[in-house]
């Protein structure tokens, strides 16, 4: 559990972080609703509900000039890194105004302006890209760090091994953050991983191991990531494992997760939004009015995003063939 006195974030920054977590939650709920209403298309929609504290806590530990890259469960990460919510929603709708021009979809959200390098839908595929982006920083000695989110399931393909090892032998400034949400699709971690304490993989690469952190607790994630980022900036790659939970299952087609009632209840009792509210109230007894403003503000942002997305044009035949090559 975290030590409240160690946070270096100001009250305003903490409220902003909480706001972002609520925004992610409501954004995802809206996506699900719109998917069911067939306004968002496709077969892939991987929601981030339940994991907000991990994404926001870790990204708040970065400088704006630092980099973020993740897998296909990327909506929350993109919001946390500061991508435009309207354009994220437009991407869900497959609109020309989407962050990826309507060509990437839910799994491929990137916004180069805020150094969000994208969601990547080949499990593990973005890990060597993270190493490459970090190599740029090492090569240019520019002091920037790459935060790479990794699914628990992704720790089992070759990309994980090759990318982590390469980052270690080259001392690259990468924070590898495993989001252990207990499952890769329907497969529990202990069924897929010989060593289910995933952070211990660090030992194999001679890499600094920051251990396990409670991924439902913003403060815990923030603190450990902050230390990890500083280590990465000055010394080399690190590994963190955050224990978290996805409330909506793997994707919209997942029907198994709904049977895991007890487990779900256990995590929901420690819901990231509730945990953070409780801590904020402890820290700032007079914070209630600020907290009360969050939901209405978020609702307005989500509504506006949906309006923007609905009103936006679809891509054209020219868009279809543009940007295959530079």
């Amino acid at each position: 559990m975290s030590d409240l006195t160690r946070t270096t974030l100001t009250r305003a920054e903490l409220i902003e972080a909480y706001h972002q977590m609520v925004l992610i939650r409501r954004f995802e709920e809206k996506c699900k609703e719109l998917y069911n209403a067939r306004k968002i298309g496709g077969v892939y929609l991987h929601l981030y509900n339940g994991q907000e504290a991990t994404g926001v806590g870790a990204i708040k530990a970065l400088k704006p000039t630092d980099h973020v890259i993740t897998a296909y469960r990327d909506h929350g990460i993109a919001i946390a890194k500061g991508a435009d919510v309207k354009r994220l929603m437009a991407e869900m709708f497959g609109k020309r105004t989407g962050v990826s021009g309507g060509k990437g979809g839910s799994m491929h959200l990137a916004d180069v302006n805020v150094r969000m390098w994208g969601g990547y839908a080949i499990v593990g595929g973005h890990l060597p890209l993270a190493a490459g982006i970090a190599l740029k920083s090492k090569y240019n000695d520019d002091g920037e760090v790459v935060l790479c989110f990794v699914g628990d399931g992704a720790t089992n393909n070759g990309y994980f091994h090759e990318a982590l090892n390469l980052s270690s032998v080259w001392d690259l400034p990468v924070v590898w953050l495993i989001e252990n949400n207990l499952y890769g699709m329907g497969t529990p971690v202990h069924v897929a991983s010989g060593q289910p304490e995933l952070h211990k993989r660090a030992i194999a690469y001679g890499m600094k191991d920051y251990g396990r952190v409670d991924g439902m607790d913003f403060f815990a994630v923030y603190e450990v990531t902050q230390q990890a980022v500083e280590y990465a900036r000055t010394t080399g790659p690190v590994l963190i494992e955050a224990i978290t939970y996805r409330y909506e299952g793997h994707g919209v087609s997942d029907r198994i997760y709904m049977k895991r009632v007890e487990e779900m209840q256990m995590f929901q009792q420690r819901d990231p939004l509730i945990v953070m509210q409780t801590k904020l109230r402890e820290m700032f007894p007079d914070i209630e009015p600020e907290l009360a403003k969050v939901e209405p503000s978020v609702a307005a942002i989500v509504e506006e995003a949906v309006r923007f997305a609905e009103a936006s044009p679809v891509p054209t035949a020219e868009d279809l063939t543009r940007n295959v090559y530079a």
Binding site: W117, P128, L129, A131, G132, I133, Y139, A163, L166
Partner: peptide, 9 residues
């Protein structure tokens, strides 16, 4: 993969 990332960057 690292060449891709480095090139993108």
């Amino acid at each position: 993969g690292a060449a891709v990332g480095a090139a993108m960057a």
